[in-house]
C-alpha cells in the first residue's frame, strides 16, 4: 500500500513538470505576451519594455522558465488581474463552495442513480427501465446551461420554492468556520443557516448532477445486468440463498466496482459543468470565478487554476485507486 502511494506520488512529478512547461509556453504564446496581458488597457511600447525588463522577459526562455517554476514550487501562482489578490488565496476562498456543490451533485447522482440503475436492470424492459434509460440519455443530451436556466425559471421564478441565485440568503447572519456553509451551520448550531445553504444548493446541484446521474444510472444498470449473468450469482440463486442476500452480497457489491471508478473519473467533467452551473446561479465558487476570469482574460487565474486542478485530480484518482484496491483486493494496480 505504502509503496503504491509513494510510486503514485513520484509519478505526479513528471506530470506536473510537463504541465508547467506547457503552461509556460502557452503564456508566452498568448497574443501580446505576458507583458500585454498584465499591463492591460494602455500598454505603451515604453511601458511594455519596462515591464518586460522587470519581468526578465528579455532573458533567455529557459531562465524565464526557471523563475516561473521557482514561483510555482513556492505556491506562488501570481496575482489575479481582476481582483488584484493572490491567485492561490482567491482559489482557496472559493474552493469550499465548489466542493460543496460538486459533492451535492455526486450525492444526488449516487442516491438516485444507483437504486434507479439497479431496479432498471432487475426489471429489464419494464417501464421503469425505459424511463431510466431514456431519462439518462436526455440528461446527457441537454446542455447544462440551458437545463440550469429552465430549473431556475420553473422552481424559483414561477413556483418560488428555491432561491434564484447565490449560496446564502441575505438576512442570514451565519458564522463562517470552514467555508462550507452547510457544515458551518451544523457545527455552530445555526441550523437556520445550514438549512438556508441547503436550499441554495438544490437547484444548482440538480443541474450539475444531470450528467453524472445519467452516467451512474447507465453504469449501474449495465454492470448489474452483467453480474446477473455471472455464474456465481446463478450458483448462489440455485443454492437457494435468499433473494436479498444474493442481491446485496453478490450482485450489488460486484456491480458497484466499476461505478466507484466512474465516480472518481467524473470529477473532471464536474468542473466543466460547474463553470456553467455556477455562473447561471451566481454561485460564489471556483466555477463562476473562472467564468469571469475567462471573460476578463485573467491569465494568472487560468494558469493557477489548471495547476491546482491537475493536482486535485491526481490526488482524487489516487484515492479512488486506493479505495478500489481496498474494496477488491484482487485488483492489482498497474
Amino acid at each position: 500500500m505504502l509503496r503504491l502511494v509513494i510510486r503514485r506520488l513520484l509519478q505526479l512529478i513528471p506530470t506536473l513538470f510537463g504541465l508547467s512547461v506547457l503552461l509556460f509556453l502557452w503564456l508566452n504564446k498568448l497574443p501580446g505576451g505576458p507583458a500585454a496581458a498584465m499591463l492591460g488597457e494602455r500598454a505603451t511600447p515604453e511601458a511594455k519594455a519596462r515591464v518586460e525588463a522587470a519581468l526578465g522577459l528579455d532573458q533567455p526562455l529557459w531562465v524565464q522558465y526557471g523563475r516561473f517554476l521557482g514561483r510555482l514550487v513556492k505556491g506562488d501562482l501570481g496575482t489575479s488581474s481582476q481582483t488584484g489578490q493572490p491567485v492561490l488565496d482567491e482559489l482557496v476562498l472559493r474552493f469550499p463552495a465548489t466542493v460543496e456543490l460538486g459533492l451535492s451533485a455526486i450525492l444526488i447522482a449516487i442516491v438516485v442513480g444507483i437504486p434507479l440503475g439497479y431496479f432498471a436492470a432487475r426489471r429489464r424492459g419494464s417501464w421503469l427501465d425505459v424511463t431510466a434509460v431514456s431519462g439518462s440519455l436526455l440528461g446527457i443530451c441537454i446542455p447544462v446551461f440551458f437545463l440550469a436556466f429552465l430549473l431556475r425559471m420553473v422552481f424559483s421564478v414561477h413556483l418560488g420554492w428555491f432561491p434564484a441565485f447565490g449560496r446564502q440568503s441575505t438576512g442570514i447572519n451565519a458564522t463562517e468556520v470552514t467555508g462550507f456553509f452547510v457544515l458551518d451551520g451544523i457545527l455552530t448550531g445555526e441550523f437556520d443557516a445550514a438549512w438556508d445553504a441547503i436550499n441554495h444548493l438544490v437547484l444548482p446541484a440538480l443541474a450539475l448532477s444531470s450528467i453524472p446521474l445519467a452516467i451512474i444510472v447507465r453504469m449501474t444498470r449495465a454492470s448489474v445486468l452483467e453480474v446477473l449473468g455471472e455464474d456465481y450469482v446463478r450458483t448462489a440463486e440455485s443454492k437457494g440463498l435468499s433473494n436479498s442476500v444474493v442481491r446485496v452480497r453478490h450482485v450489488l457489491r460486484n456491480a458497484l466496482l466499476p461505478v466507484v471508478t466512474a465516480i472518481g473519473l467524473l470529477t473532471g467533467g464536474l468542473l466543466s459543468g460547474a463553470v456553467l452551473t455556477e455562473s447561471v446561479f451566481s454561485f460564489g465558487g471556483i466555477g463562476s470565478f473562472l467564468k469571469t476570469a475567462i471573460d476578463a482574460r485573467d491569465y494568472p487565474v487560468l494558469v493557477g487554476f489548471i495547476m491546482f486542478i491537475a493536482m486535485t485530480y491526481v490526488v482524487i484518482n489516487l484515492i479512488v485507486d486506493l479505495a478500489y484496491s481496498v474494496i477488491d483486493p484482487r485488483v492489482r494496480v498497474h
Binding site: P34, M38, R50, V51, A54, L55, G78, T79, S81, T83, G84, Q85, P86, P300
Partner: peptide
C-alpha cells in the same frame, strides 16, 4: 507591487 501586477 512587484512590477508584474497590481496587488491591492
Amino acid at each position: 507591487g512587484a512590477a508584474d501586477s497590481i496587488n491591492y
